[in-house]
């Protein structure tokens, strides 16, 4: 690899890169700890053995799907729990495909390892960071992922261990931590252009409508796919119009533009 002109953005030593990763992970950790804590408590309430609650946070590592599984434990069978998990987490397919091309410094195995850590929040963090610094160090990226994952597990362990001490957990609204985190992601890094606002508004509106219509766990995926596709059609038309203008200025390009 050529010496990249990014010495100002990439700290020199591995430990400093890892430290930068930790710094970036901190806000997510602050959001994860209370939500994972709440998950630990709800696991106890659902009569799930502590080892299973903690193992879920280690190997599934997907907040919304974990809470849904606890809800289904009393009524649903295995297939209901597993298929619900799949539907809820299928949005990660979109996130994974959209972040993949930005990880050009990683080999296939590193990409695979990275993808296992791809929660919504980790996605938002890395998406924003890769936009401003495409040549980020892998040490930094993996350090951030590891710390965030560990915080999710630690929060769960604290929840099953000390949850009974906290009275009226429900009233404290700890689950709002997730919403606050998504708000932070959306309004500090994702919404950059008027077009982004349009896509977000469409997705939010469609999600509300299909939820009210009874889409249940499908709502997120349906709304996201529909809004992304509408946004894509608009972008394509805009792009074609721009190309059309370029062609009328320089007719020799018309063959390329038609392709």
């Amino acid at each position: 690899m050529n010496r990249a002109p990014d010495s100002t953005t990439a700290p020199q030593s591995a430990s400093r890169r890892a430290l930068l990763g930790a710094k970036l992970a901190a806000p997510i950790i602050i959001g994860y700890l209370p939500v994972a804590f709440a998950f630990g408590i709800v696991g106890r309430l659902a009569d799930l053995p502590d080892w299973a609650t903690i193992t879920m946070s280690v190997i599934v590592y997907g907040g919304a799907s974990q809470f849904a599984a606890l809800q289904l434990l009393s009524t649903g069978g295995l297939s209901a729990i597993i298929s619900t998990t799949f539907i809820i987490n299928s949005r990660h397919m979109l996130l994974s495909a959209s972040l993949g091309p930005k990880l050009h410094r990683m080999n296939r195995w590193q990409k695979a390892l990275f993808s296992l850590e791809l929660t919504d929040e980790a996605y938002a963090l890395h998406d924003a960071q890769y936009r401003s610094r495409p040549q980020r160090s892998r040490t930094e990226v993996f350090a951030a992922n590891l710390l965030v994952h560990v915080s999710w597990v630690v929060g769960t362990i604290l929840g099953v261990s000390f949850g009974h001490i906290v009275p009226n957990l429900d009233q404290l609204g700890l689950d709002f931590a997730l919403t606050a985190m998504f708000i932070a992601i959306l309004f500090t890094s994702v919404l950059k252009s008027a077009h982004d606002w349009l896509v977000a508004g469409l997705a939010g509106g469609i999600a509300v409508v299909v939820t009210l219509a009874g889409a249940g766990i499908w709502a997120t995926v349906i709304a996201a796919l529909t809004a992304a596709t509408i946004g894509w059609v608009i972008s394509m038309r805009r792009r074609r119009r721009t190309i059309g203008k370029a062609v009328s200025v320089s007719p020799q390009n018309s063959r390329e533009a038609g392709a």
Binding site: L202, A227, A228, T229
Partner: peptide, 19 residues
């Protein structure tokens, strides 16, 4: 690629607004 660029705003808004 252009379709994938629409994804972040769509997914996150689809979670936040109903919540």
């Amino acid at each position: 690629t252009l379709w994938l660029e629409q994804v972040p705003a769509a997914v996150i808004a689809a979670i936040v607004v109903p919540a």
